[in-house]
Structures are given as structure tokens and as C-alpha cells.
Nucleic acid binder design. Sequence first.
RNA 1: GCCCAUAUAGCUCAGUCGGUAGAGCACUCCCUUGGUAAGGGAGAGGUCACUGGUUCGAAUCCAGUUAUGGGCACCA
Length: 640
Amino acid sequence: MPRITLPDGSVRQFDAPVSGTEIAADIGSGLAKAALAIQVDGDLRDLAGVIEQDANVAIITRESEDALELLRHDAAHVLAEAVKELYPETQVTIGPAIENGFYYDFAREQPFTPEDLERIETRMREIVDRNETIVREEWDRDEAIRFFRDWGEEYKAEIIDSIPQGEVVSLYRQGDWIDLCRGPHLPSTGKLGKAFKLLRISGAYWRGNSDNEMLQRIYGTAWPSEKELKAYLHMLEEAQRRDHRRLGVEMDLYHFQEESPGAVFWHPGGQRLFQRLIRHIRERQEEAGYVEVDTPQIMDRSLWEASGHWEAFRENMFTSQTEDGRLFALKPMNCPGHVQIFKNGPVKSHRSLPLRIAEFGKVHRYEPSGALHGLMRVRAFTQDDAHVFCTDEQITQEATAMCDLILSVYRDCGFEDVRIKFADRPPLRVGTDDIWDKAEQALRIAIDSTGLRYTHNPGEGAFYGPKLEFVLRDAIGRDWQCGTVQVDFNLPQRLGASYVGEDGARHTPVMLHRAMLGSIERFTGILIEHFAGHLPLWLSPKHAVICTITSAADDWAREVQASFRARGLLAEIDLRNEKISYKVREHSKAKAPVILALGKQEADMGTVSMRRLGSKEQRVLTLDEAVDLLAAEVVGRVNP
RNA sequence: GCCCAUAUAGCUCAGUCGGUAGAGCACUCCCUUGGUAAGGGAGAGGUCACUGGUUCGAAUCCAGUUAUGGGCACCA
């Protein structure tokens, strides 16, 4: 006789096992109509699921947060049903809900085309209109295997085959279509609604393994309401509008070309932005007690063998064979070089620890061709890399200081929303448990000091030590993993670094790896997208463009430019024989943060007419006022 | 690396059935000195990504290569 406790604390007593449908109906007819599923003691179940024992039950409706996943999962099923109806020769595999949508992987000789996608989507809408009842069935495992194999669904059979013997498997039937699925599902296809859209077709490996055959994946998005669907599609458009590959061309920042895939040709504007970032990081880390070094671009194979890179990452390294037969490798990381500086530098004892070594090190990694993506994934990039050599006791304080510095640099750059991921000891590792305890504890204290929430990734640490990863959320809600703090017990020892401790004996230092922006190339891309090209003045590759309205103002324009330059402001001058609106349009498109329009009036009065990017407002200021205003904004690193 | 798609002027893109290329913007010159997102005119600019094949003839059809795009896998 189940006693059902509802979320508001009220209790309903039933005198027989009761289904979610019945509970919802018992509460009210409106709810019965809106009900999509139930949550029983925290687990989502089908609405038709029967409850025999006392339980806490919540009715899930369209508005519930948990409804999203159900909806999307159902959308995947409806997609599969549509595909099977239209292309019966296709085999179905798996189709889960994912962030923002769903996908389904199919095995079919012929590739799906964009036209197929339209047909499929139309059929999906028909299936929703049919409002097919979705029914859960429990089958005997072997019977299910036989069933799918007879039907030609080898993939499904294989999935069930990997389910332990004797276990019951659940199938869901909707109309003529039946699919293996853990569930839960909506009560009928009509409940899905029409706020979905198929987005793209792509390849995906069977079971995510690149040794397996390639399937065809159809991606879609699904939402509770048309309004939310629109909002999401709008976000996608917005992302496209902000695409750094597009803006990078419009702003004349950089280009790529075939002869050097994955390597950036920085144009003067891009180089300026790049160097402003470096300048800022340099300043901030000098305050924090780092020293800057520079280590060789190529080093002999033997060093990479000693560091372990040769064994683990050889495939990702560029190498160069010289006339004398030596094999050199371009550095994929800076750490081995920094250990050399530790070994050959001034540090001989614990008295001069910690040693904080930083380098804007350019590294080369032979990334798989399919991974390359604008500035976001390249083969040659610059890291704001640093390594802190310290004693075991110093790990905590150093890690804490790193977190502070990293977060503060993110704030400088306009990122307030930051998350941390904490990855602790993996099964395969070096170092004693004692040391791991200490290192993990140190990182935990460091996170706590930031006051930020963090997610815990158990067992995901590197073999040489635990790590923190810093994730930035940008202006349109996308996450970018940038910074990292890693404890390393391995490399200093491998490369023979040591210091004399208080006890007069030799000890191996601990090494902390740190990157803040990570790849500066990539961070540049993130910044462009975050600000949609409207970079803050202090980072912008140009500050002001001085445009004349008539040639009578040419001399004044030159004077204004000179005054700007004298105060460190980057000022271009546009004296062309074009209308002011033409010039405004052109420089606005190129994302000039400030446009100064100078005509006869300004020349006579010693003023400038100032217009900021993204605004139509014009302010007339004296030259000094304008210079002071903008210079203060640059020095103060003001973000919009 | 894998699947699918794409590659034509600096940029964005047309180019039918195979008959050796076109537009808009940008660029150069001329006219216009115009007050805040395109004033007018003229001109120059192309090994149709590359290599090979089919064909009397290839931007167009076929194959391979390279790069790019969307994913997958990878990201030490």
C-alpha cells in the first residue's frame, strides 16, 4: 500500500500499486495532461511506471529542468524512427541527449545529404502529429539479441550482447518502431512538441573508438518551447557573427596559408594585440616574483629521451635532422628547458627556493590535421608558461599564489565567470601516496582560497601529479579551458635536478607547472569572440582613427595624431578624399574603437569630435580632454 | 588520422548541357571638399587550389594530393 510523498511534503495514500499517470490524475487533471514523467526517490522513470512501495515522487512536466533531457532523448528516438521509415536499409546504433540537443548515429552505405535532413525533419514532425504511444517492454536478453539480429540491426544486437547475461533489457515501442533503450521516455511522441531542428550531419566512430568503422551522426536541437528554440538558434548565429576567423580577416589581424597549416601569420594589428597581452602578463608575473627566461627552440633528441617526451609524445613532435646526423626536436613544451635552467642557474640550496621561472615559450606540436581550427587549435603557439621549483612544504603557498594570480589576470581581461576543475591521482602514477596526499591537499587549499566552486575529476590527474584546470565562460556562455596548475614529482627527478636542504643532504625539488592564458594565440581568438571584436582600448590593436571631413582639417589632423602618439596612444590618420560617412563605415567595420572626425569647426576650435565603436553618439572635446580620457582608459585597463 | 562537404579576382560569391571566365565590395586614376555606417565615373586585376586522366576541346567530368569547413578521434 504505497504512501507517496510529494515535493511539497504532502502525502497520498494508495491502496494498490500506483502508476505515475494515476498519481498525476489524483492530484489534478491539469497536471495529468502536463505530466511527462515521474521522479521516484530522485530517479527519473516513465509516467506509466508502477510504484509498489512508499516513495518520494515528483511529477515532471515540460517546465521541469529534468524534462529537457527526456525531450531530447525522445527527439533522438523520433529521429531514428523517421530515418528507418524513410531509409529502411539503415541500421540504428545509439542516440543520446546531449547539451543543447541530441544526436543519433546511423550505419548506412550512402551518406545523408542536407536534402535528406529536410525530409527526415518533416517526417519527424509527422510522427509527432501521429502522437504514437510510447510503451516500455521488458525482454529477455537473448531473445532481444535474436530479435535485433533477425531484423538486421547488428549494432543493437552488439550492444545488448555487452549487457551481462540473464539481465532483463528494456525496449521502447512507438508505432511500428521499437528500440533498445534504458529510458525513461515521454508517454507519447506528441509530447515532444515541435520545437526541434536538425542541424548537421557528420561522421562519428562506432563506440567512439577510432579503430572502429565510421557511422553517420545526425545532430539536432530540441527545446520545450518555440521561444527557447529560437533563442538557441540565435545564440548559434551570434557565435557565427563573433567567429574569430571572420573577424580576424575583417580586423586584418592575421592569416593562415597552405604552406604552414596551423601556424599563424600575424599582421601588424594582430601582433600588437598579441604583444599587449604578453606585456600585461609580464608585468603581472614580475609583481608576483617570477623571473623570465628564454630556452632553445630545438634541442637534441637525448634531452627529450631523458624527459620522457620522446617515448610518450614522439608522434606529436616536429624533428629536424642536421648534416652531421644529429636529430633535434622542436620543443613541444618548455618544462625540460626550464629544468636545465634550474640545474645550471644560481639555485644551489633551499635558501633560494622557490624559484619561479616564466617564459613566453613558442612550442610546436604536430596536431592531427583534423584538429586544426583557426587560432583555437594550431601547431605553433606561444604559452605563458611558468615553472615553480620549490620544496614539498612550499607547494601549498605557491599553488595558492598561482590561483590568485590566474584569477586576477582573467578579471583584467574581462572574464569574471571562472570555474575550476580538480583532477586527482590516476591509477597509474609515480610518487608515493604520502606525497600525493600532500600535493592534493595543497591544491585543495589553493582552490578553497579562491572561494570558487570546483568540479572534482577523480583519477583524471597526470601520471606525474594532480592538476587544476581553469575554465572561462565567455559573453555568450561558452566555456574555454585556459589555465592550468599542475604538481609534478617526476620531471625534476628524471632530469636530475636537486638542491641542498636544511639537513645538508640533496633533495629533488617539486615542480609546479603553470599556464594562465594557455596558448596566447588561442586566447587571442577567445578574446575576439568574447568581445565580438570590440576589444577594450588597452588591448586593442588600434586606439583611434583620425578622419578628416574636408582637406582643410589635414594639418589639424596631423597635430592631433602627434599629440596622441606623444601620450602613447595608437592613432592612425585618414586624410583620403572620401566622405565622412564612408570613412566612419569603413573604420567601424574594421573595429576601430574610437573615430575622431575633424572638420573646419574642430580645426578652428582646437577640438575633436569623438565617436566610440558601437555608439552613434558624438562628443566634442578639446584635444587635451580627449587625450586624457583615452590615455586614462588605456592605463587603467578599463573593460567595457 | 577518420567521415562528409568545399576550393573561381584581395574579400563575398555567380558561372546553364564540357566551347579557355563574371558581379558586388576592396584597389588605382579622375571628378566631387562632402558633418558621422557606401557620392559619381573610368581602369587594372584570374595558371578557375595543385597533379594527372577522359575529350577535338575541361573552371565544368573522373582520380589523386593539399588546404579549409562541420563533426569524430586526439589535445601530453
